[in-house]
Structure formats: structure tokens, C-alpha cells
Simulated assay, not measured.
Amino acid sequence: MLRKGMERTFLVHRRQFIAAALGFPAAAIGGFPAAGATMTYDAAVTTSRAPLQAVPRDRELVRFATLAANSHNTQPWVFSAHGNEITIAPDFSRRCPAVDPDDHHLFVSLGCAAENLILAASTLGWRADPVIDGDRIVITLEETPPAASALAAAIPVRQCTRATFDGRPAPPETLRRLENVCREPDVTTILLTEHAAIAKVADYVLEGNAAQMRDGAFMRELVNWIRFNETEALASMDGLFSPASGNPSLPSWLARPLMKLFFTESGENKKYREQLVSSAGVVVLAANRSDTPRWIAVGRACQRFGLQATALGLKYAFVNQPVEVAALRPQFAASLGLGERRPDIVMRFGYGPDLPKSLRRPPELVMRS
């Protein structure tokens, strides 16, 4: 009983800290009325995705960086700011050893965050020069005339949309812009729009999904990062928010047993097949070498793709199963003509609905002195 009381106290204090960071009354986080105000999920999303402000510069740049795509919404990053230098480092306490045993996705996520920060800095009048230092990204800021861009404007709007799209093809000019925005040294972009090619990718996605769903460690890790309702999501400000994937918000005591009944291999494979068939295309990113700097480079290209898709009115989602299952990866690479190279990221895109957006931890929780 004492341990449960200590855990509850810790959770309340954590919620109060998050509330203060977001500018909400602390009592609102704990579920109690606070001068007529409460912290709702929508309010937290709106706060984290508010328009970029010039001051405080470092906090605002970090806030926009955290809106980047990242694996399982684990937000595996730590930021530090000193003078005109901002460093992004991995937070290995948030790694996912089952789905990402070599931290590939973790470093791709850091690259995504770096790209957001670089684009946001440009709009505020700072040229950002990133340098890879071991497993850190050191970004030096230098004053320059402000330069707004469609990609930067898309940062607070972008999301991974795990839904069925409407099947419309993308115009040739849209495809050209999507392919061009991925250009990054040592990174190859493969854009697939033919139905047969997409169906072939779907076969690999389904095979990978089946393997993962039969893997007990993978499933335990996945469920650990699912937030079944707004209360759970607000308590952690991370993880995979169930309604963001088109699922209902349910109490966890009900959702967990129901998940065992309805979250099945055949059901998920049917869903993935429908989602891929409904997509306008698939893009695969592959680095020329498999190491930390190239994974970060893939992340930057990946983030630009998501932002460009958003700016063009498209939705997109990751279908990384063929690159996450190590035994399947070489076959998938061969089917794409990549030889010995590792396919890093697989994304489908198309025209689709808006879904609830996921939360991000406020800068105060990810910045270190």
C-alpha cells in the first residue's frame, strides 16, 4: 500500500510539473478543478503545436524540434543549449530493444528532430550548421535574414496518419517535389507508385507484421508504449495515442483485455493491405552505409518528406516492418535493387483524413543544462 501511495504521489508531481511547463494550472493535471480550468488533451496538443515565437529562442527551437517524427513516439532525445549552440543527444533510457536493437530508429529520430530545428531556426533568422560529434548532433546558430518556408510552416501540422487513404493518385509535379525534397548526401530515395510495386511492398509489410506479432518481446514493448486514453497520454506526454491510429479511447482496464481479442495478426494484416492499396505511393530511403551519421542523414530526409507531404495536402505513415525484421530485411533490399545496402525507412503516402495528433513532452522535460 505504501508503494502504491508513493507511485501516486510521483505521478501527481510529474503531472504538476508538466502542467507548469505547458502553462496550465497544476491542479488541472491531477484531475481536480482548478479555478474553472482543466487541462484537456486538445489543449495540450494546441499548446505544444502553437506558432513559433522568437523568444525564448532556445526553448522555442527545442519545442519545434520535438514535433518531429520518432519511433513509437518515445521521444528519445535530450537537448542542451549554450550560447549559440544547441546539442541533440540520444536518451538511451527511451530505447526500444525489441523493435530497434541496434538503435537505428533512435538515431533516425534524432535526425528528424535536427531537421525541424534547422528549419525553425531559419524562420527566426538563424542559420543552423549541424555537425555529427559521436552520437550527438551539435548545431551552431549564426544570425542571418529570416527565411520562411512551406516546410517550416508544416512542422506544427505534420503527423503520421495511420488510416486508410482515398486511393487518389498524386500528380506528377507532387511526386517530383516529394522525391526532390529527400535529396541528402549518401541517401537514396526510391519512389514507387505503380500498383504492382506497392502490392509487392505490401507483401513484405504483411510478412514482417506477422513475424512481429508472433514475437512476445516485440508485443510487450509495443503495448508498453500504447496510451489507450487521454488520461494516460496526458500523464506521460509520449507514446502511441490509440485514437491517433483511428481506435477508440478506452479505459486501460478495458482496452488491454480487448486488445488481445481484436488486435490479431490476420486483422492487422488485412488493415495494412487495405492501407497500402489505398495509398498513392510508397517511398523507401536507404543510406549508402549503415552507421550513426548516415542514419541521422536518413532522419533529416525522412522529416523533410513528411513536411513536404503535409505542405502539399498529403498524409503519410510509416510501414517499417520489412526493415525492422532482420531476417526479412535482405530479401526486401534485394527486391528494391539495393544489393547489400540496408533499407532504412518505408513510408506510404496519399490523401486521407485528419486524426487526433500525438503529444510531446514540453522543453523543460527534455532540456538539460
Rank of each mutant, 00 (worst) to 15 (best):
Met1Gly: 12
Lys4Thr: 09
Glu7Asp: 12
His13Pro: 00
Ala19Met: 04
Leu22Pro: 05
Gly23His: 08
Phe24His: 04
Ala26Val: 12
Ala27Val: 03
Gly30Asn: 13
Gly31His: 11
Met39Pro: 00
Thr40Ile: 01
Val45His: 01
Thr46Arg: 15
Gln53Thr: 09
Gln53Ser: 12
Pro56His: 13
Pro56Ile: 12
Asp58Val: 02
Arg63His: 03
Leu67Met: 10
Ser71Ala: 15
His72Asp: 07
Pro76Arg: 04
Trp77Arg: 01
Ser80Asn: 07
Ile88Asn: 01
Asp91Trp: 04
Ser93Asp: 14
Ala98Gly: 05
Asp102Gly: 01
Asp102Glu: 15
His105Val: 05
Asn116His: 06
Asn116Ala: 10
Leu117Asn: 02
Ile118Cys: 14
Ser122Trp: 05
Thr123Leu: 05
Leu124Lys: 12
Leu124Ser: 09
Gly125Pro: 13
Ala128His: 09
Gly134Glu: 08
Asp135Asn: 09
Val138Asn: 07
Ile139Gln: 03
Glu142Ser: 14
Thr144Gln: 14
Cys160Thr: 15
Asp166Ile: 02
Asp166Val: 03
Ala170Lys: 01
Pro172Cys: 12
Thr174Ile: 15
Thr174Trp: 08
Val181Phe: 05
Cys182Tyr: 08
Glu184Gln: 15
Thr193Ala: 09
Thr193Leu: 05
Glu194Lys: 11
Ala199Phe: 02
Val201Tyr: 01
Glu207Tyr: 00
Gln212Ile: 05
Met213Val: 00
Asp215Pro: 05
Glu221Gly: 15
Leu222Cys: 06
Val223Cys: 01
Phe228Thr: 15
Asn229Tyr: 01
Leu234Gln: 07
Ala235Met: 12
Ser236Cys: 06
Ser242Tyr: 05
Asn247Arg: 10
Pro248Arg: 10
Leu254Gly: 01
Glu265Met: 02
Glu268Pro: 01
Glu268Lys: 08
Lys271Tyr: 14
Arg273Lys: 13
Glu274Met: 04
Ser279Ala: 15
Ala280Leu: 02
Val283Tyr: 03
Asn288Ser: 15
Asn288Pro: 00
Pro293Lys: 06
Ala297Tyr: 02
Leu307Val: 12
Ala309Val: 03
Gln321Asp: 09
Leu328Lys: 02
Arg329Ala: 13
Ser335Thr: 10
Gly337Gln: 06
Gly337Pro: 00
Gly339Pro: 08
Glu340Ser: 14
Glu340Lys: 13
Pro343Asn: 03
Ile345Thr: 12
Met347Gln: 09
Phe349Cys: 04
Gly352Trp: 03
Pro356Phe: 08
Arg360Leu: 03
